[in-house]
Design a binder for these strands. Structure first.
Length: 852
DNA sequence: CGGCGTACG
DNA sequence: CGTA
DNA sequence: GCCG
C-alpha cells in the first residue's frame, strides 16, 4: 500500500474541454467547394451515366439484394472458376462508433526546403534505428544478436536542446490531467534486464548472446522512475497577455496564419487583424523574410508603427518574432524567451533568413497547390529550438547519408533472388524447428520417382501449413505465375469475396517461395494451400503461359474500374462498390460530381483529400525519399523528445525500391515519455506545414484536447485493454524532398512493445495474417502489434505455456486482466524481432523475406 | 461446414 | 466505414 | 479456395 512511492496510474480526468474550433478546411477541390452541398438534389443526373449498360451486371438493386445467384461474370464459368454471388453488402458488420473525422490542417503552404542533413544511418542489417545521445542506452539495435555488424549512428541532437531543463513535472504549469499523466507507472519488472536476458537465452538457441545490450531497460522497479527526460506537455495560457499579429508572407501562408492564430488563441493569447501600435505586442513572421521585405510588409499593415527589431525591446513597440516562437513554446509547454526568436536586423547577419535562393518568391498562391515547386532550405529548421547553436546539427550538410544502405535491398535486378534463397535451402532444413515441417513432399515424390535426375523433385521442399514459415523474397523465379495469381486475388477481393482472395494469396506465397523456377506441376502437387483450383491455374500457366481466368479478370471492365476506385485514399471496398453501383466509371466523374458526398458523410472528407491528391498519392515514394522524410520527421521528434528511436517499416524495410507510403515507428526507453510524442509531433509537423492532413483530431484542437489523448497505461509493458490510446496517425505529408504529397504513417509505442510493433508494421499484410493465425491456432496465443497474450480459458494445457505463465506470474501480480472479455495474461515482452520469432517458434525471416 | 489477423482512427 |  |  503505502501509496506514495508507488506511482499509480490515475486515469486522468479530462480538464474542461474547450469547444473545439471546427475550423476545418477542405482540400482544394478542382471546382468550388461551395457546390458540394446543393448538389445532392440532382443526384439523378448521375443515373444517366450508368444507364449505359449495367443490364448484364445486375446493377444497383440486384447486387444490393444480396440474394441473386447469377454470376455477374459469365466468363468465369467457362474459365472453370466459381464466382461469389454476393457482391453486395451481404455481410453487415455491426457498425461501430462513428467517431467524427476531422481534418487537421489547411493544406500546406508553399514549403519549405529541407536543409540537407546527414543524420541517419542505416544498419547494414535491416534495422534502421536512429538512436540518440547518452541516456545510458548504450546502443540499442533491435537485431543485436544478429551476426552481421549493425551500425547505429548516434544522432546527437540533444545537447543544447534540453527540453525543459526541469525534468520534474513540478515546474510546469499543468492542468490536473497533465499531472496525472505525468505519473509513471509502477513496477515494470517484466523488463528488468536479467530476466529478459534469461528469457532470451532460453528461447534463442543463439549461443553468442554475450554482448547483449547492457540491461536495455533497467528501470528500477521501486525507485522513482522520474522521467529522465522532461515530458513535454502543452500547457494552457502560455500566451496570456499576448496580442499577436501574424504576417502572412513568405513561409507563412494564409492557412498557416490562421493556424498559428488559432494556436495562440487557444493558448490564452489574442490576435489582431492589423498592427495596433498601442496594443499589439508581437508580430509573428516567417523566418525566411529578408529584412527589406519584412520592413515593407510591416509598413503595409501599419504605416505609423515603428517596429522594434532589436532585442532589448521597449514595451512601446511590438516585437517581431519568428513563428518558431509560437510553435516551440507550444511544444515546450511554456513561453520561451523572446530573445531567442527575434528576427535579427541587418541584411545578412540572420542565420535564420539564410535563403541563398529565394526561388521565385512564392506568391501567396499556396493553398496546397501541389505545383509549388522547389523547396527552399529553410524548411526543417522550423522545429529547431531556434538557438543558433542548435543549428549545427541541422545543417551538417554532408552529402552522403543516402546510400550505403540501399544495395542491400536494391535487388531490382534478378541478381539477388538466388542468393537470397541460400538462406533457406531446403537441404539445410535441419535448422528449421519441427513446427515448421508439417508435411514433407519428399515422401510423395519418391513414389513418382521419375528418373528426372537432379533434385528437382528429390529435394524435399518444406511444406508448412502457414506461409509465415516460408521466406518470400520480393523477386523470385516464378514471378510469371505469381503475377497472375495476384491478379486473380485482386479480382476476388474487389468482388467482395475476401475468403477466396485470401486463399489465392496463400497459394501465391507458396509459389513465390519455391526455390527455383517451376516446370512440372507435380512438384507442387501436395503442397499446402495449393488446392485443385490453384493447381489448375498454375498448370495452365505452365502449359500456355497465361491463365485465361487471370486474363479475363484483368480485362474485366468492372474489375479495372473498381481497381481505380480502390486506389483512392479513403475509398475502401464498400465505397468503391457503392460508387460503381451509382454509375461512376472513372475517377474524373467522381471528382466532377459530388453528389456522393451526402452518402458517405463520415468518409467524405478523407475522400476529398484522396481525390484531390490522387495523382500524387498514387505515385510511389523512392527509397531515398523515404529515408529523407524519415530524417525530417525524426528531427522534429527528437527535438520534442530527445532520445527517441525510430525505425522505418513498411515496404521500405522489406527492401522495396519504392513504397506506396512511409511508416515511421517511434519509441523511447523511457516508456512514459513516449505517450505524448505523437500529438505533439503532429502538432509541430502541422504547424510547420509538413503535415497537411491527419486522421486525428490533434492538430486542430486545443492543447487540452491533446493532453486528453494519451496512453491509458504504459509502463506495465503492455498497456492493458487496447483502448483509447493514440498510437498511430495516418497523415498526408507535403514532402520537402520531392514537393509531392506523400502518405506517412507515424506510430509511437513504448519500448516494451517496440519489437511487436516493428514486426507488425514491417508486414507484409499476408505475413502478419499468417503469423497471427499460426499463433492463435497452434499456440493459443494472440499476437498483435502490442505484444503476445495468452488466453487462459483455452489452451492452458501446453507445458511451455504454463511455464511461461508461471514465470511471468512470479514477476508480476498484475495478472488476471481481461481482454475482449476473456481472461488473459501477457507473454513476457521481448526487445527484438528475433525474440518474437523465437517466442513463436518460427524460424526467423529477414524483413526482405517477408514479402508475402 | 465453419473459419479465414488484429488492431486502431 | 477507413487505415495498417 | 483451402483446411480441419
Amino acid at each position: 500500500m503505502s501509496g506514495s512511492p508507488q506511482r499509480r496510474r490515475l486515469r486522468s480526468p479530462p480538464p474542461p474541454l474547450l469547444p473545439r474550433s471546427p475550423q476545418r478546411l477542405r482540400p482544394l477541390s478542382r471546382h468550388d467547394d461551395a457546390d458540394a452541398d446543393d448538389d445532392d438534389d440532382d443526384d439523378d443526373a448521375f443515373m444517366d451515366l450508368d444507364q449505359a449498360e449495367d443490364a448484364d451486371e445486375h446493377g444497383t438493386t440486384a447486387a444490393r439484394s444480396a440474394g441473386t445467384s447469377a454470376t455477374p461474370f459469365a466468363w468465369l464459368r467457362s474459365a472453370g472458376l466459381r464466382s461469389n454471388n454476393n457482391v453486395g453488402p451481404s455481410q453487415s458488420k455491426p457498425r461501430q462508433n462513428g467517431a467524427p473525422l476531422k481534418s487537421l490542417a489547411p493544406q500546406g503552404e508553399p514549403i519549405v526546403k529541407r536543409a540537407r542533413i546527414e543524420v541517419d544511418s542505416q544498419t547494414q542489417s535491416n534495422e534502421l534505428i536512429i538512436a540518440s545521445d547518452e541516456s545510458s542506452l548504450g546502443e540499442i539495435v533491435l537485431d543485436q544478436e544478429d551476426v552481421r555488424p549493425s551500425r547505429t549512428s548516434v544522432v546527437d541532437a540533444g545537447a543544447t536542446v534540453s527540453v525543459g531543463s526541469q525534468s520534474s513535472a513540478g515546474s510546469i504549469t499543468l492542468g490536473e490531467s497533465a499531472e496525472a499523466a505525468i505519473e509513471s507507472s509502477a513496477s515494470l519488472q517484466v523488463l528488468s534486464g536479467d530476466d529478459e536476458q534469461q528469457e532470451a537465452d532460453a528461447l534463442n538457441t543463439v549461443p553468442h548472446t554475450a554482448p547483449v545490450q547492457s540491461e536495455p531497460v533497467d528501470v528500477k522497479p521501486t525507485v522513482d522512475v522520474k522521467p529522465s527526460v522532461a515530458v513535454p506537455v502543452v500547457a494552457h495560457q502560455i500566451f496570456t497577455g499576448v496580442r499577436a499579429f501574424v504576417l502572412a508572407s513568405g513561409t507563412i501562408s494564409q492557412q498557416r496564419k490562421a493556424l498559428l492564430e488559432s494556436k495562440i488563441v487557444h493558448a490564452g493569447g489574442t490576435t489582431s487583424v492589423c498592427i495596433l501600435p498601442q496594443s499589439t505586442t508581437h508580430i509573428i513572421v516567417g523566418s525566411d523574410l529578408s529584412y527589406d521585405r519584412l520592413v515593407n510588409a510591416i509598413a503595409q499593415f501599419s504605416p505609423s508603427t515603428k517596429v522594434k527589431l532589436e532585442v532589448p525591446a521597449s514595451h512601446a513597440a511590438p516585437l517581431v518574432l519568428s513563428a518558431d516562437w509560437v510553435t516551440n513554446s507550444l511544444v515546450r509547454g511554456r513561453r520561451l524567451p523572446d530573445e531567442d526568436f527575434v528576427i535579427r536586423t541587418g541584411p545578412t547577419t540572420s542565420a535564420l533568413s539564410r535563403v541563398p535562393n529565394p526561388s521565385s518568391q512564392e506568391s501567396s498562391t499556396e493553398s496546397a497547390s501541389p505545383h509549388s515547386p522547389l523547396p527552399t532550405a529553410a524548411a526543417c529548421k522550423a522545429a529547431s529550438p531556434a538557438a543558433p547553436s542548435s543549428l549545427e546539427w541541422l545543417e551538417s550538410d554532408s552529402e552522403n547519408g543516402i546510400d550505403l544502405v540501399s544495395d542491400e535491398f536494391d535487388s531490382t535486378s534478378a541478381a539477388h533472388p538466388p542468393a537470397a534463397f541460400t538462406t533457406f535451402r531446403p537441404s539445410r532444413k535441419s535448422e528449421v524447428p519441427p513446427a515448421m515441417r508439417h508435411r514433407e513432399v519428399s515422401s510423395t515424390d519418391d513414389a513418382d520417382s521419375s528418373a528426372e535426375d537432379t533434385n528437382a523433385s528429390a529435394s524435399p521442399f518444406s511444406n508448412p501449413k502457414y506461409v509465415c514459415f516460408l521466406p518470400v523474397p520480393r523477386q523470385h523465379s516464378n514471378m510469371h505465375i505469381t503475377d497472375q495469381l495476384a491478379c486473380i486475388e485482386d479480382f476476388y477481393f474487389l468482388s467482395g469475396d475476401e475468403s477466396r482472395a485470401l486463399a489465392m494469396r496463400r497459394s501465391l506465397c507458396v509459389i513465390a517461395a519455391l526455390p527455383r523456377r517451376l516446370t512440372r506441376i507435380q512438384d507442387i502437387q501436395s503442397l499446402h494451400n495449393m488446392g485443385q483450383s490453384s493447381r489448375a491455374i498454375v498448370k495452365e500457366i505452365l502449359d500456355k503461359g497465361r491463365s485465361t481466368a487471370a486474363t479475363c479478370m484483368a480485362n474485366d471492365p468492372k474489375y479495372t474500374t473498381m481497381l481505380q476506385f480502390r486506389s483512392i485514399y479513403g475509398c475502401g471496398q464498400r465505397i468503391a462498390q457503392a460508387l460503381y453501383e451509382r454509375g461512376y466509371r472513372t475517377i474524373a466523374e467522381i471528382c466532377a460530381d459530388r453528389s456522393w458526398v451526402a452518402d458517405f458523410p463520415l468518409s467524405a472528407e478523407r475522400l476529398e483529400w484522396g481525390l484531390t491528391l490522387h495523382t500524387e498519392l498514387g505515385s510511389q515514394v523512392p527509397r531515398d525519399e523515404v529515408k529523407q522524410l524519415g530524417d525530417c520527421v525524426y528531427k522534429y521528434a527528437n527535438t520534442i523528445l530527445p532520445g527517441v528511436m525510430m525505425t522505418i517499416g513498411g515496404g521500405y524495410r522489406r527492401g522495396k525500391p519504392a513504397s506506396k507510403d512511409c511508416d515511421f515507428i517511434f519509441t523511447h526507453n523511457d516508456s512514459d515519455a513516449i505517450e505524448f510524442l505523437l500529438p505533439q509531433l503532429l502538432l509541430q509537423l502541422q504547424v510547420a506545414g509538413l503535415v497537411v492532413h491527419a486522421n486525428t483530431q490533434v492538430g486542430h484542437n486545443t492543447p487540452e484536447r491533446i493532453i486528453n489523448y494519451h496512453y491509458p497505461i504504459i509502463s506495465d509493458f503492455t498497456h492493458r485493454p487496447l483502448l483509447d490510446c493514440t498510437d498511430r496517425s495516418f497523415t498526408i505529408f507535403k514532402s520537402p524532398v520531392s514537393g509531392l504529397h506523400r502518405r506517412i504513417d507515424i506510430i509511437c509505442v513504448p519500448r516494451t512493445q517496440y519489437a511487436y510493433t516493428v514486426l507488425a508494421w514491417t508486414g507484409s499484410k499476408q505475413f502478419n495474417r499468417s503469423l497471427r493465425l499460426y499463433a492463435e491456432r497452434e499456440l493459443g496465443w494472440t499476437l498483435s502489434s502490442h505484444g503476445l497474450l495468452q488466453i487462459y480459458s483455452e489452451s492452458g494445457d501446453s507445458e511451455q505455456q504454463q511455464q511461461q505463465h508461471q514465470h511471468h506470474q512470479q514477476k508480476s501480480e498484475q495478472l488476471g486482466r481481461t481482454h475482449n472479455g476473456k481472461q488473459v495474461s501477457f507473454v513476457p515482452p521481448v526487445l527484438t524481432e528475433r525474440q518474437v520469432f523465437a517466442q513463436l517458434k518460427v524460424p526467423y525471416l529477414e524483413p526482405w523475406q517477408r514479402n508475402h
